[in-house]
Amino acid sequence: MRKLIFVLFSIFLISVYSCDDGDIIEFNLDFDDEFYACEGVSDLVLYKTKDDPSESLSILISNFTIEDLIDVADNDTLEITDKSVTFYYRTYSDESVSNLFCEDIPDVVNITRNEVSDDSTIDILTVLTEDDGDGIDSELEDINGNGDLTDDDTDNDGIPNYKDVDDDGDNVLTKDENPDPDDDGDLSDAQDTDNDGIPDYLDADDDGDGVNTRDEETSSQDNNPTNDVTNEDVGPDYLNPEVSNNIPATEYRTHTVSKSYLVTVTVNDISINEASIESLYFGTLSDSNTSETETLTPVFN
Rank of each mutant, 00 (worst) to 15 (best):
E292W: 03
V243C: 01
N223F: 10
D200L: 10
D107N: 12
V234F: 09
T126W: 04
V72M: 07
D21L: 09
D82N: 15
Y47M: 06
L13C: 08
I14H: 05
L285P: 07
T250H: 02
N240E: 10
D152A: 01
D104T: 07
S276E: 06
T293I: 02
I59R: 03
E26I: 08
T129C: 08
D137M: 13
S288C: 02
D269L: 02
T91E: 15
D164W: 02
F64D: 02
V116E: 07
N227K: 06
T297Q: 13
D76A: 14
S276L: 00
D74Q: 15
Y281D: 14
E139Q: 01
N110L: 01
T65Q: 08
D203C: 03
S18Q: 10
Y261C: 06
I159N: 12
V97K: 05
A204V: 10
F12L: 05
Y261F: 15
P181C: 14
Y281I: 11
T91V: 08
T284W: 09
T226L: 08
T218G: 14
D215K: 12
L29F: 11
A249K: 04
H255N: 15
N289Y: 08
D206Y: 03
I59F: 05
A73K: 14
S279W: 00
N144C: 05
S288H: 03
D82W: 12
P225T: 07
G235D: 05
Y238E: 04
T126C: 12
V108K: 14
Q191G: 00
G235C: 07
D189A: 07
N240P: 11
T226Y: 02
P179Y: 02
D30S: 15
